[in-house]
């Protein structure tokens, strides 16, 4: 039909602008996709100096750390990191799992509504605040109350302290993922079990957890990788002594703390600089591998229910 109001002025500019937008947006997307590679290459490039006279195996197996004489053994740091990280996961893992089950299957809707801000705030608190909390609260508790029970004398700056602080930090992270995982399980499944007369916990144990197992494991994996890279809070409470820790009441020196603590001095010795960049690379590799595996597991898990 013919209308008087028609405004059919052709504006090729609109279409041109659209094409232009597509181009620059695509460019930005490319930059972001390439970013992880750039980070990896940057670190590899900077740490290549170290490889000139040190072999990878030697550095990872050796525990001798004498920067002035060029001896870079990363073993103490790796072991410390493993101690702190796994201990943290042992603390946080069960709490998260049980809490998630409680929130998804047992609690009233209002409890979840109240807990959501709690989880969000815990996730939002900066790590340096966790560090202050650790120094002010956890360190004295460990040195005054916990260590004496086990007959140990310590300043409180120990692997255990680091692990406790770290555990609290990764709780919101793991908890959120597990809640999400549990929510993907079809309600009909647990209803079927309940209608057969099984108890609630029995249903959770036999049906829900069995189905969600891969998802829960990958949530833990993600938590582990998050914990592994956490720097400041751990650094503030863990003691930072270069040695291979033999118990949870000894101080440790995790990999991220090594980088953070020495950034000022490293400029003077090129190999030292290179060694720190190598530890960053090591950290990146470990974290990415954990992440990669866990995320793949989650994706495959979610596909199963779609």
């Amino acid at each position: 039909m013919i209308s008087l109001f028609s405004i059919q002025r052709m504006i090729p500019g609109r279409v041109k602008a659209d094409r232009f937008n597509r181009t620059w947006m695509f460019a930005w997307l490319l930059v972001i996709v390439v970013l992880p590679l750039a980070i990896a290459f940057g670190l590899i490039w900077k740490s290549s100096l170290l490889f000139e006279d040190h072999s990878l195996i030697e550095m990872i197996v050796s525990s001798e750390w004498k920067t002035l004489s060029g001896k870079f053994g990363f073993l103490p740091f790796i072991i410390s990191s493993l101690w702190v990280t796994f201990l943290a996961l042992i603390f946080a893992g069960p709490v998260c799992l049980f809490s998630a089950i409680y929130l998804t299957f047992y609690a009233k809707a209002i409890v979840l509504k109240m807990m959501q801000p709690v989880i969000d705030i815990l996730a939002g608190i900066p790590s340096v605040i966790y560090g202050v909390w650790g120094v002010v609260a956890i360190v004295p508790i460990v040195s005054k109350y916990v260590a004496p029970v086990f007959g140990v004398q310590t300043s409180g700056y120990t692997i255990l302290t680091g692990a406790v602080v770290l555990a609290v930090m990764i709780i919101p992270f793991i908890l959120n993922i597990i809640i999400e995982i549990l929510n993907t399980i079809p309600k009909e499944l647990s209803e079927a079990s309940l209608s057969l007369g099984a108890g609630k916990w029995y249903t959770v144990k036999q049906v829900v957890l069995r189905k969600a197992f891969p998802g829960v494991v990958s949530a833990m994996g993600l938590g582990l990788s998050r914990a592994f890279g956490e720097t400041i809070a751990v650094l503030m409470v863990v003691g930072n002594v270069v040695h291979i820790p033999k118990g949870i009441f000894q101080p440790g020196y995790p990999l991220p703390a090594l980088i953070a603590n020495n950034y000022g001095e490293m400029m003077s010795i090129p190999q030292y600089d290179s060694a720190l960049m190598f530890s960053a690379l090591l950290l990146l590799t470990i974290v990415l591998v954990f992440n990669l595996v866990s995320r793949f597991m989650i994706i495959r898990y979610e596909e199963k229910f779609r």
């Binding site: 013919i2 209308s3 008087l4 109001f5 059919q8 002025r9």
Partner: peptide
């Protein structure tokens, strides 16, 4: 006015 005129022309063409 531009639209007005244009549409009238266009209308004729279209018919």
């Amino acid at each position: 006015t531009y639209f007005y005129r244009k549409k009238v022309d266009g209308a004729n063409q279209e018919t």
